[in-house]
Design a protein around this nucleic acid. Structure first.
Lengths: 332, 332
DNA sequence: CTTCAATTTGGAATCGATTCCAATTGAATG
DNA sequence: CATTCAATTGGAATCGATTCCAAATTGAAG
């Protein structure tokens, strides 16, 4: 049996397609008796309005798409939960897709916005150049989150990465850190901002740039270990390391411990994100908490405005407050 | 400026809509000169075919959707990577959405298959009852993965959870485990199967059911700690604990260590999944590796068959081989 | 310079739901 | 009982891309 259409429902119910449609869309201009007949026919035929036909006519889909390099980052999944809740309460369905840092894949997904498969787009970590993101945001409903391209056109929600890095580096210094090191990631814009914050705090404490150890790579556990091994060849050894993510910090702690040194007594370690890994680590990590859920909600609210209200929109970034979470991987 | 349509392109290029469409769909029956004119017009107008119109006419979307309770499970994100790669190489776009264990949310997403928003559905961890999954699989393109409802109708890909649990429990016994305990989760079908495997292995080793400690809860770190505290009140203490996930095992190890006992000398601990947490844990976890990526690929291939080939399909489950990964959290 | 076949093209019909307009019904009013 | 108004309904037009059929064009062969 093929799919039932409004026509079928109309025939079965003995009314016109207009009436069926009005029932579907809860128009008040339908008599009680018609409504019942239509409802019965719908149930009998197991009818569902075809999305593509409806979308074509209405010129909107009530769907949005989020894009991220990968999905297993706790920040991303938490932020997307915020997006999803906010979207649901406005009647939108939210979907997400990983780009795997693959430009072609990302293009194909972004095309879903261009060709009207979805009404809006939330970008976590674009692979395309900033410039392209900006061109897109110029005319389409796009909101960035966490990673925000350097531009006037785009709107985005994030924490103040530079300030957060500054704050946690200050904490490392205030608790006795003198020879600071950082494990960062210059590939990401947020990574560059965190490096700036780190360097500024270190400079304010009187460190010279040459004294600041800096190594960089991807934000995963094994990279964290590898880069820490590199740091441990320095002489003198650093006495405080700021890591760009908790996962990296966990690798860092592990490597330091395996080398027979103590955290935080010999070397203090700080993470970033306050993911569950911060608590799983021994000692538990001092880190920066991002209000990921709220960032997600806010990003959707702004996207909604862009999708529904025509005309020019707010620009630039919106910062949400971060929080320094002090645990046991830094000195007291 | 509003969106350009085929009509606009046809007018600009000085050809008919038929010709434009033929160019778009790479029909060979178009002269070189027409093709050039159309291509130029498309570029000039920045034209993109509207997805809903195309989908309506073609009666398919070339999109599939995956559903999971949450996205930050390493198994799910790895399996979905497999789905995505397989889908991409068949020209499909794959999207994913978390249900958060919310039945209403799940229904709304499943409706996307019913109303033709997507062509197929992959379910990781359904919230709806098995029966409903089966009814759905009966007539729609649905494939289950990891968690597979108990049914004849559905098709699904997973490891043999019962056997895997049996194997790792055997390992615990062979390395000296005598008083076995398990931290499981009866809410999930895979959890119940793992429990069966655990009990069978323990029984084969001569343990009586009354001797087997079993506690259960969600598969997260804090639950792992809490349930382990419960286990540590037993007398005599267990000397080997099988945990239903690495995250839980990490919590278990942590709690045992904090209690002043040693892993694995006093109590051996085994995890499940071989996620990155297994390596982050100290000592590193003995665990079961699931071929998640391949499971994802296979799930898509089967979904593709269901979407394209009409008629009845293969039923029942397909098992992919798991692997016991021995590390340092169990005795030698 | 025809004739025939092959290639290319135009344009109407189609997919299914929505919406607008006109028509009908029914009730209420004078 | 005629008239007016509101409530309800039917049905055609519409959204935009595809596809089928018929028409037009081209080219080759005779």
């Amino acid at each position: 049996m093929a799919r039932a259409t409004v026509q079928d429902v109309a025939k079965t119910a003995g009314v016109s397609v207009g009436t069926v449609s009005r029932v579907l869309n809860k128009s008040p201009a339908v008599s009680e008796s018609s409504k019942e007949k239509v409802t019965a026919a719908i149930r009998q035929l197991n009818y569902r309005p075809l999305a593509s036909a409806r979308d074509l006519r209405r010129d909107r889909t009530m769907r949005i798409l989020a894009l991220a390099k990968n999905l297993n980052s706790p920040i991303i999944s938490e932020a997307f939960r915020g997006v999803g809740d906010a979207a649901a309460s406005s009647g939108y369905v939210s979907l997400i897709a990983p780009t795997a840092g693959n430009l072609e894949r990302e293009q194909q997904l972004v095309d879903m916005l261009r060709n009207g498969s979805v009404d809006g787009l939330i970008m976590f970590s674009p692979t395309m150049p900033d410039e392209d993101v900006n061109d897109m945001a110029e005319q389409l409903s796009v909101v960035q989150i966490c990673e925000i391209a350097d531009s006037e056109a785009a709107f985005g929600v994030s924490i103040d990465d530079r300030q957060a890095a500054f704050d946690i580096t200050r904490h490392l210094i205030e608790t006795g850190g003198r020879r600071l090191a950082m494990i960062g990631n210059r590939a990401a814009r947020s990574g560059r901002l965190r490096e700036e914050g780190f360097r500024r705090a270190a400079a304010e404490a009187g460190m010279f740039p040459e004294q600041m150890l800096f190594v960089e790579g991807e934000f995963d556990f094994h990279t964290g270990r590898r880069l820490t091994r590199k740091l441990l060849t320095a002489d003198p050894l650093p006495d405080a390391v700021f890591c760009g993510s908790d996962t990296v910090a966990a690798g860092c702690v592990r490597e330091i411990t395996d080398a027979g040194l103590r955290v935080p007594d010999d070397i203090a370690v700080a993470g970033f994100d306050d993911s569950v890994q911060a608590e799983m680590c021994v000692p538990e990590l001092t880190t920066i908490r991002q209000p990921a859920y709220d960032m997600g909600r806010l990003a959707f609210e702004e996207l909604l405005a862009r999708m529904t209200v025509p005309g020019p929109h707010r620009r630039g970034r919106t910062f949400l407050p971060h929080e320094l979470v002090v645990r046991d991987s830094t000195r007291t």
